[in-house]
Computed example of a mutant assay.
Amino acid sequence: MKFLLVDDHALFRDGLRYILQQLPETSEIMEAGNFPDGLKLAEQHPELDLALLDLNMPGSEGAISIRYFHQRYPHIPVMVVSSEEDRAIMEKVMDYGAMGYVCKNSSAQVVLGAVGLVLSGGLYIPPQVMRHGGTAARNGDGQLDRRRLHTNEYGLTARQMDVLGHLAEGLSNKEIATAMNLAEGTVKIHIAAAYQILRVSNRMEAVRVAEKLGLIGAANE
């Protein structure tokens, strides 16, 4: 997996890098000390699995910059890691496309959990937002708004759909990783997330259910 860390404090980047290295299949961690340099790295590395951005740093305009990053690189999931704990700002950041928001005073366990959730296609909603029923997290019925998860009507992300298509072709995890330019560990995360969403436990069941729902073409077509 490839990560991008963008924060103007080198000491904090060191700590976050150490935490990310605890994840399996972490292959490369790129760093930038300001927002413009972060944009350059994102441009040069479209295969990034996740970008972790600070809000307040040189070249950044806060939440607006998160929206700009998401609009420019919609294929790269964004998670904000910031010392800002204002709930309104958290909600705005999530509305602007961030897939997660973690405060800098969070434990390593919380960070790892949030990163894992986002990598699997989920949305990490800050407890401060959940407790107050924030608009970024829920719709008018109080239910999680799946549109904010960047998913289709069944809750599957675009990458999970791509993985299902490759499963239907009979590709191995390694072959899928090569085809999608991803780490094999990332492919396993997407497969596990798809299994959970489709409520299946193996490849054959996943393909069968996906075909039944019309998510992929029948294998014999």
Results as ranks from 00 to 15, higher is better:
M1E: 01
K2L: 09
L4R: 00
L5F: 02
D7H: 06
D7A: 05
H9Y: 15
H9T: 11
A10N: 08
A10R: 10
L11E: 14
L11F: 07
F12Y: 15
D14E: 15
D14P: 07
L16C: 07
R17M: 07
I19W: 06
Q21F: 06
L23A: 09
L23P: 00
P24N: 00
P24H: 03
E28P: 01
E31A: 07
G33A: 14
N34V: 06
D37Y: 00
H45T: 11
H45M: 08
P46W: 07
E47Q: 15
E47Y: 06
D49M: 02
L50S: 00
L53F: 15
D54C: 08
M57R: 05
P58Y: 03
G59L: 11
S60V: 03
E61L: 09
G62N: 13
A63Q: 10
I64W: 09
S65F: 02
I66V: 13
R67A: 14
Y68Q: 14
Y68G: 07
F69D: 05
F69P: 01
F69W: 13
R72V: 10
R72Y: 08
V78G: 00
V78S: 00
V78C: 03
M79V: 03
S82G: 05
S82Y: 02
S82Q: 06
S83E: 12
S83D: 14
E84T: 13
E85H: 13
A88S: 09
A88W: 09
I89M: 13
M90R: 09
M90H: 15
M90V: 00
E91T: 08
E91H: 08
V93K: 00
M94D: 01
M94L: 08
D95N: 14
Y96V: 00
G97S: 09
G100S: 03
V102S: 03
C103E: 10
C103S: 15
S106F: 06
S107G: 10
A108V: 05
Q109A: 11
V111N: 01
V115L: 04
G116E: 09
V118E: 02
V118Q: 03
G122Y: 01
L123E: 06
L123F: 15
Y124M: 03
R131C: 12
R131N: 08
H132T: 13
G133N: 08
G134D: 06
T135V: 12
T135Y: 06
A136F: 02
A137G: 05
R138I: 11
N139L: 04
G142P: 06
G142I: 05
Q143S: 11
Q143N: 12
L144A: 10
R146T: 08
T157Q: 07
A158K: 10
D162E: 13
D162K: 09
L164K: 02
G165R: 05
H166Y: 11
H166R: 09
A168E: 06
G170H: 04
G170D: 03
S172E: 07
N173A: 13
E175I: 00
E175W: 05
I176F: 02
T178F: 10
A179C: 08
M180S: 01
N181G: 08
T186G: 07
T186Y: 10
K188L: 11
I189V: 14
I191Q: 01
I191S: 00
A192K: 11
A193M: 03
I197L: 08
R199H: 12
V200C: 14
S201H: 12
M204E: 15
V209M: 12
E211W: 04
K212P: 06
L213S: 05
G214P: 11
G214W: 14
L215A: 04
L215E: 05
N220Y: 12
